[in-house]
Amino acid sequence: MTVIVKTVSSWVKVLIFLFGIYIILSGHLTPGGGFAGGVILASSYVLLMLAFGRSFVASNLPGSLASRLDCLGAFLFALIAILGLVCGGTFFVNFLYQEYFPGEPFALVSAGTIPLSNMAIGIKVGASLFLVILTLAAFRAESQQPTEQDLADPGVRGKE
């Protein structure tokens, strides 16, 4: 890609990433949330991939790390559900909201476990979507030698 594209995208990617974080963090107050924010996070890396090529991005955020982040996000989400069982007696119970942390409506810190779940989902969606695109880009680069990655496609693991 040309210098203009490279320069602009290296500036803009920070803004996109920040916007994704904003969408995730205020997911319980405005439209958006974990899934939309995660997609935006991944798209900042996709922009980098378009501008600088796949190998540059893969050296910044290797697939193995993204795969671990992906598992971590899902695990955190499940952990919140299980903590609900431990603290509140039922799966997915909003234990923070009821017991320890009432919060005030429309404040950033409110709604108990919902922002935490949003964060977990954001990590999961961002990492898995990044992995999907990284894997699809890998096909073009080495279409004769497919990796094992696509078979256990991390993007299909469940609902967010």
Binding site: V132, F139, S143, P146, D150, D153, V156, G158
Partner: peptide, 20 residues
């Protein structure tokens, strides 16, 4: 939409592998 995203990603990757 999330579900169809997952199945679309899998379908496209199967298409690419089949093409290869």
């Amino acid at each position: 939409i999330v579900i169809s995203l997952g199945s679309l990603a899998l379908m496209i990757s199967i298409c690419i592998r089949t093409y290869a």
